[in-house]
Design a protein around this nucleic acid. Structure first.
Lengths: 216, 216
DNA sequence: CGTGTACTTGAGTGGGCTCAAGCAGGGTGG
DNA sequence: CCACCCTGCTTGAGCCCACTCAAGTACACG
């Protein structure tokens, strides 16, 4: 095996199944300000990354889905930059930080991969800025865009976050989100599924949502 | 010189004065989608990083000031991710991408620095998300926060962006920004200075602005 | 001095926030 | 197994901030 060809996936795959953990809805995977102990590869479910804000009690700045890595931001820092919270049932594999750092130090090529991962996160954050958050764009449009981003894989299933979470993401109030979701349901654009706290999700009319997401 | 101790600054310093360029107000330093040719270290002035959006004609997702590096995002990519535009007079030193990549490849320690720079940019973007952009937060508060972020060094001078630019940053309209700025001026919180297109700036009452920035 | 762009200011409207009840449904304890 | 309760969601009424549309103004540059 050529060192420079080792990828992040190799590291993760090596650990898969060995160190898998399950998290319930609303479980804290790690907390902002705590000592960095591990990075986590999300194998299923959704995780919200929260930055504590004096006001309101925390704003969601990113959402991680299957295949994303949580805690990378803090891989070379002393403490976590965010709080990571499970939304619905989550399965993640845990890679101790010492092991991770050792592995990265050994394989020079990995560092570039890391840089690219970081860039991807940056791009995602900027997309949120440009498309999801407030401004002149109407709330219905923003909510449609959010739902599209919460899609599970390539099907019509969509992670169903709480009304509160969706509100803090698109920068509005829970009431407004509730009203718009109701409207979407009335129009048959989305259907609520899996009410059992684990596996809450929508089934959405992707094409219709995409149309709304392009309005004004 | 120990290789692992080489910093980004060393690379920049080596080039300082040799490859310095001046840009006028509104000059495009590089455009989104163009082939990556160089990275730029900002030595003075302010640069807005724009992501073209089908709607409205581009949203500003980050602002670079003295000491920041433009184009790092695309250092290992084919094409630039943003358009970089000078706001007021800008001086920047240009480091050809081939040279930059060569330099990074030679000095392993630099890669970690790069990763950290990328993380810093990510943190900045997330701060914008949490503090600057729309949501329930009143426009006056957001504008006060923006002005504080546009501070030049540690004094009371503040980069004066166009009313339009400030509007797209905090996610509001030019009219609203104009009204709030007028109000600030009436209250003596800020004073307009340097109307000569180059070196436009405010003088601001930092303490007062900080107080407003913490409201609601 | 003319011209154009950017900014300012006004009036009116509407989207979304606030405040305040009611409702549903699922988890828990009896 | 059922009833309770508690949290999260829904829905309504009223109001206000900020958006829209539309002139008017100031200033920088040619």
């Amino acid at each position: 095996m050529v060192c420079s060809d080792v990828t992040l996936d190799d590291l993760v795959d090596f650990h898969a199944g060995i160190d898998d953990f399950d998290y319930d809805h609303d479980a804290t995977i790690f907390g902002m300000g705590e000592a960095t102990e591990a990075v986590y590869c999300i194998r299923g479910g959704a995780v919200k990354m929260v930055r504590a804000d004096p006001a309101v009690g925390g704003r969601i700045v990113r959402v991680l889905k299957k295949g994303d890595v949580a805690g990378l931001e803090s891989a070379f820092a002393e403490r976590y930059e965010h709080t990571a919270v499970a939304v619905g049932a989550v399965r993640a594999c845990r890679i101790p930080i010492a092991y991770f750092r050792h592995f990265v130090a050994k394989h020079a090529g990995l560092q570039v991969r890391l840089f690219e991962k970081s860039q991807a996160a940056l791009r995602e954050a900027e997309t949120w800025l440009a498309e999801l958050v407030g401004g002149t764009i109407p709330a219905r449009t923003r909510l449609a865009r959010l739902l599209l981003r919460l899609r599970i894989g390539d099907g019509d299933r969509i992670h169903r976050f709480s009304v509160n979470d969706m509100a803090t993401i698109i920068g509005t109030t829970p009431e407004t989100v509730s009203r718009i979701v109701s409207e979407f349901v009335r129009q048959g654009l989305v259907v609520k599924g899996g009410n059992s706290i684990v596996s809450r999700h929508f089934r959405g009319d992707i094409a219709a949502l995409e149309k709304i997401s392009q309005e004004a």
